[in-house]
């Protein structure tokens, strides 16, 4: 009996010290209001958590790791959020932080946002991407498969493996190649949808349509592609663009709204002229 109690005390102490260790790593104390939602069929609510001892050198997601580690220790369900590469390229991380997709820093994904962008004592409200087309999977993670389906509708050049011409048989002016590259840097994170007051996906869709519309490889299917992708986008239930350009402001890869103009042109051409 005594031994059991001793063991318990020991484990509590080690528990405590590991918590202290986590907390000792920094000196910022934050309050988080986090959207918790069990799954797509239940409704969610905000839950408040303390995040003590946060270091300004932590990334935002590392801060959440610390909070989660604490929750697990208390046998509470950790906060679910999507993330993978943590170097700003896979497009998996999301989070609307104090009303801003990917947080307050421009041209930065949440995983590259660091806690030095916040002050000691701050209250941070963390919400998922909110859009009918992005149902919540759990807590802060949403289902972005709508983006995949849009790409599947036509975001490709219909060639098979093999039997293609030599790479240097197609000369592409550098400016065009660079411009196409700028459109192609989209990471498909969905911040444009999250930022848009209409939850419109047009920045995302237009970036892909633009890339192929500019390159010679994309020409044969140019108009069919624009039409198929736009109609799929509509089917997914995204809103329409009202040109507020919030998407451009919040895009972590700084994709330009000129892509949307180009998409419009491509689509109208497809529907009224070239179709």
């Amino acid at each position: 009996m005594r031994r059991e109690r001793l063991e318990l005390a020991k484990s509590q102490i080690s528990n405590l010290t590991s918590q202290i260790k986590i907390r000792m790593s920094g000196n910022m104390n934050l309050t988080l209001k986090v959207w918790r939602q069990k799954n797509s069929s239940t409704s969610g609510k905000f839950v408040t958590y303390k995040a003590p001892g946060i270091s300004p050198d932590m990334s935002f997601l590392e801060m959440l790791d610390v909070v989660n580690e604490d929750l697990v220790k208390k046998s509470e369900d950790p906060i679910q959020f999507d993330h993978d590469c943590r170097e700003g390229i896979c497009g998996m991380c999301s989070l609307v932080i104090n009303g801003e997709p990917h947080g307050p820093k421009r041209a930065t994904t949440t995983c590259q946002l660091h806690m030095r962008s916040f002050k000691d004592g701050d209250t941070i409200v963390i919400e998922p991407w909110r859009a009918a087309a992005f149902p919540v999977v759990k807590d802060l993670a949403v289902d972005r498969s709508a983006f995949d389906r849009i790409q599947q509708a036509g975001g490709y050049v219909s060639i098979g493996t093999g039997g293609v011409p030599d790479a240097n048989e197609i000369a592409i002016p550098k400016v065009i190649a660079d411009e196409a590259f700028n459109s192609a840097t989209c990471i498909g994170c969905g911040a444009c949808v999250a930022a848009c007051k209409n939850a419109s996906a047009m920045l995302f869709v237009s970036a892909k349509i633009s890339q192929y519309a500019m390159l010679p490889q994309g020409q044969p299917e140019r108009y069919a592609r624009a039409e198929a992708m736009v109609l799929q986008m509509d089917d997914e239930g995204f809103g329409s663009c009202t040109n507020t350009y919030a998407c451009e402001a919040q895009c972590p890869k700084e994709i330009k709204v000129t892509n949307i103009a180009r998409m419009n042109r491509e689509f109208f051409n497809a529907e009224f002229i070239k179709g």
Binding site: A199, G239, E248
Partner: peptide, 13 residues
């Protein structure tokens, strides 16, 4: 397209 709105009004530039 956005059935649930944000708790914090977006600062979207």
């Amino acid at each position: 397209a956005r059935p649930i709105s944000y708790a914090i009004k977006p600062k979207d530039g």
